[in-house]
Amino acid sequence: DSCIQFTRHASDVLLNLNRLRSRDILTDVTILVNRQQFRAHKTVLMACSGLFYSIFTDSLKCNMNVINLDPKVDPEGFAVLLDFMYTSRLTLKESLIVSVMNTAIYLQMDHVVDTCHRFIKSSDSS
């Protein structure tokens, strides 16, 4: 008996999900952030963000196809986090780090918030 473990399966699946997103295939929700629109899959959003998990497990909200985020959320910060959800790569630029962190707090993505904190501390110290 043995088990074959495909070491790149998780990244292959994520790559394919990101290709489905970029081609708008089976995307089922539009996230509005200050009039900027982002198409995505509810399941991926739920898997990565506590806020979206709460929204789409709510029987009254789960059928919503357009979600308006808080006007204080920066679209650029949201774009960085949405790309992270679909690629596992978090782009951290000095100019965006605070808005990414604040958006991660809002979206309840605690591990990303911790990483942003560490990044800010390390850049302060350097």
């Binding site: 043995s2 088990c3 473990q5 790149r8 399966h9 394919n16 489905l20 081609r23």
Partner: peptide, 21 residues
């Protein structure tokens, strides 16, 4: 997975969805 050995397969695991049609 219980028992036996685990063989690591490094190649692709699934088909690749094209970027654009």
């Amino acid at each position: 997975y219980e028992g036996g050995n685990t063989i690591k397969e490094m190649g692709r695991s699934i088909h690749e969805i094209p970027r654009k049609e």
